[in-house]
């Protein structure tokens, strides 16, 4: 399946992916209206220091610990994509406790939030990759186990 892959050597640390993610998942059609003056809640996070930067989002693991661990069954796979039913989620954050990459976080309503590859929002494909100016984030098919 297609996943979001990150090449940190090409990352500029511009944080554009975070804004594009927050916008894509805001349900708004106007970026200024969606983001201006509000704390943004992206599902991708740019980490690093003054030398290295890179973006982290859900890896859509082959055998996801988060799905095994979710106490409500809210986390599940749809055609390989790890999705969350936020109506079922009770906000216990067991998924945060187990995700080895720090890729889940609580949303404003307490329920957990994670990357779902923008397949269900208006963007239709990962907004982070689509908007990355340097192709440090790509959305593509790679063989399992191939870096």
């Amino acid at each position: 399946m297609k996943r979001v892959y990150v090449n940190e050597e090409w990352c500029l640390g511009c944080h554009l992916c975070e804004f594009n993610c927050a916008f894509a998942n805001s349900g708004e059609s106007d970026m200024v209206k969606a983001l201006k003056g509000k704390p943004i809640r992206p599902r991708i996070r740019v980490e690093g220091d003054d030398r290295i930067t890179y973006a982290v989002s859900c890896r859509h693991c082959l055998d996801p610990l988060c799905i095994r661990s979710c106490i409500s069954g809210a986390l599940h796979k749809e055609d390989g994509v790890v999705c969350i039913d936020r109506e079922k989620c009770v906000g216990c954050l067991t998924c945060v406790l187990v995700c080895p990459y720090g890729a889940v976080q609580p949303g404003p309503d307490g329920a957990a939030m994670k990357c779902e590859l923008c397949l269900k929002n208006a963007c239709g494909e990962p907004a982070c990759a689509a908007g990355c100016p340097n192709r440090a984030i790509v959305y593509e098919e790679r063989e399992e186990g191939q870096a």
Partner: peptide, 19 residues
Amino acid sequence: PSLLPFGQDYRAKKLGGAV
């Protein structure tokens, strides 16, 4: 907690491949 202290090889494997 972040992936920074794990080094580039770890990140290349985890963020650049299917895990």
